Simulated scan of single mutants.
Amino acid sequence: MPRTKEQYEEMRKATREKIHSAAMRLFVHQGFGSTNVQNIADAAGISIGLLYRHYRTKEHLFRDLVAYSVEGLNRNIAAFETDQSPKKVIVQFVDEVYNDFMNGEELANLLILIKQSLLGSGTAANQHDEVLKINARLLDATAELIRKGQQTGEFRSGDAHEMAIYLYASIQGLAEMRVLLKSNFTMPSPSVLTAFLFKEKE
């Protein structure tokens, strides 16, 4: 019995997910320059011909992964720009980071991939500029959220921009330690990650 259009689409989607997962892992662990398309096909468990049906080059694949990462950053910006309680928004964000780090390397790999894209690995100039702008917007949105939390008395006083940088520097550092230490990695609790930000209950 021939496959339906929907079944073909499901198979195509499953193959792309295998390629994405394998490529992200290899780009992070081996570096963009040391990874070739045969490595990616082997790690994904597919033929190199099938990989080429999805991506013409590893640069094309890398740019697709960066675009996927940018979508995630845009979702964070949208969440930070809502009218919800600043503390609630930050708690939810940090809880998601904590759970993702505890359950695997995907978020850590995505964060490292974004860093690689900013350092020039496989990224087209226009995409590099887009990633820089998105990162700046995320930092501004976070700093503004922190200012609101300071005004409501939930957050500690201090320079909101510096505090936003500290938050992301901590998460980026943890991403790299998550990948390097593997099973020896211990993820700090959400309360440790936000201790510099939230006022202690009196």
Rank of each mutant, 00 (worst) to 15 (best):
L119H: 11
N76A: 11
L51R: 08
A169N: 11
K148Q: 11
D95A: 06
N39R: 02
L119Q: 13
N126P: 06
H29N: 12
K87T: 00
V66T: 05
G149L: 01
S183M: 07
I48Q: 04
K115Y: 11
E176M: 15
A67D: 14
K13E: 11
S183F: 06
A41Y: 03
T35K: 14
A22G: 06
H128F: 10
G33T: 05
V91H: 12
R53L: 08
A164K: 00
N109W: 14
V131S: 07
A124L: 12
K88M: 05
V66Y: 03
F196D: 02
F196M: 04
N39T: 03
I112V: 12
E106A: 07
P2W: 05
E176N: 12
N36E: 05
V66H: 09
Q38F: 00
E200C: 01
F93S: 07
L193I: 00
I146F: 08
V179H: 05
E71T: 11
A14H: 12
L145K: 14
V97G: 06
N99F: 10
G49S: 15
N39E: 04
G33V: 06
D159S: 03
G149T: 03
Y52H: 15
F198K: 10
Y68R: 14
D95R: 11
A43W: 01
P86I: 01
E202W: 06
S117T: 12
G45H: 12
M187C: 04
G31D: 07
L65V: 06
K58D: 01
E9I: 04
S21K: 09
I77D: 11
T152W: 00
I19N: 09
R63G: 10
Q30W: 09
G120K: 08
P86S: 03
L118Q: 15
E154H: 09
Y55Q: 05
E162Q: 01
D140F: 11
I112A: 12
F62T: 00
E200K: 10
V131Y: 13
D129I: 08
I48R: 09
E162T: 00
K133Q: 14
K13S: 11
Q30L: 14
L180M: 02
A41G: 00
I19G: 11
I146D: 07
I165G: 01
S47T: 13
N184I: 00
E105S: 13
D100H: 15
L174I: 02
K88Q: 01
L139N: 10
S157M: 08
N36I: 07
I134Y: 13
